[in-house]
Design a protein around this nucleic acid. Structure first.
Length: 190
DNA sequence: GCGTCGATGGCA
DNA sequence: GCCATCGACGCG
């Protein structure tokens, strides 16, 4: 009797490759719910299951930084997918995003919250705290998210219960403020 | 429990 | 003069 492949892959997390990030921002944002963010830094491995994301589209999306055009800050967004777009907000917090879609499109997914794994104690209940908890700062702007220090994994056997809502903190974005581009895992307590 | 507000810096 | 935020504070 042959061993079932699905039984194999169902027990071991696999790393998400570049292809995963070539889809639309909404698709990637939704697909990242329940996946695991992994960070290797200074000999330590940090892992957390993603429970909240938001999709930011190209220049037409008034909530997206790309709507202000290609500038020094947004340069990474307009680059190839599969890289981290990290910027400072309110002078205090760094935000971790992943560039997705195709190069030049400037679509990105904001990682907003996660649940720490492996006994790691951390508060990752918002984008500012998440980046801080993972030690991600603007120094990581432009690094690949399919490398050794920062990457995503599947979470075999985990089934998120996904809710879709408007994005947070973008009241200024006119007709885009109500766009259903925020994805939340209802299994998690937020 | 909820609303309000200050911190703090890069950006257009 | 804005912010893709957070936590502290004041209510009652």
């Amino acid at each position: 009797m042959p061993r079932l492949d699905s039984a194999n892959t169902a027990t071991r997390p696999t790393k998400l490759g570049l292809g995963f990030f070539r889809a639309s921002a909404a698709e990637v944002a939704r697909a990242l719910i329940g996946k695991v963010l992994v960070r290797h830094v200074e000999g330590v491995r940090l892992r957390a299951r993603i429970v909240e994301t938001e999709a930011y589209l190209g220049p037409q999306d008034l909530a997206s930084h790309s709507s202000r055009g290609r500038t020094r800050r947004t340069e990474t967004m307009f680059g190839p997918p599969g890289r981290a777009y990290v910027y400072l907000i309110y002078g205090i917090y760094d935000m971790l995003n992943v560039v997705v879609g195709t190069e030049g499109e400037a679509h990105a997914v904001l990682i907003r919250a996660a649940v720490p794994l492996d006994g790691w104690e951390a508060k990752l209940t918002g984008p500012g705290l998440l980046a801080r908890g993972f030690g991600v700062t603007r120094a990581e702007n432009g690094v690949t998210v399919t490398g050794k220090e920062l990457y995503f994994q599947t979470s075999p056997g985990y089934r998120p219960n996904i809710a879709i809502t408007p994005r947070i903190g973008i009241e200024y974005a006119k007709e885009w403020k109500d766009a259903p581009l925020r994805f939340v895992d209802e299994n998690a307590i937020t």
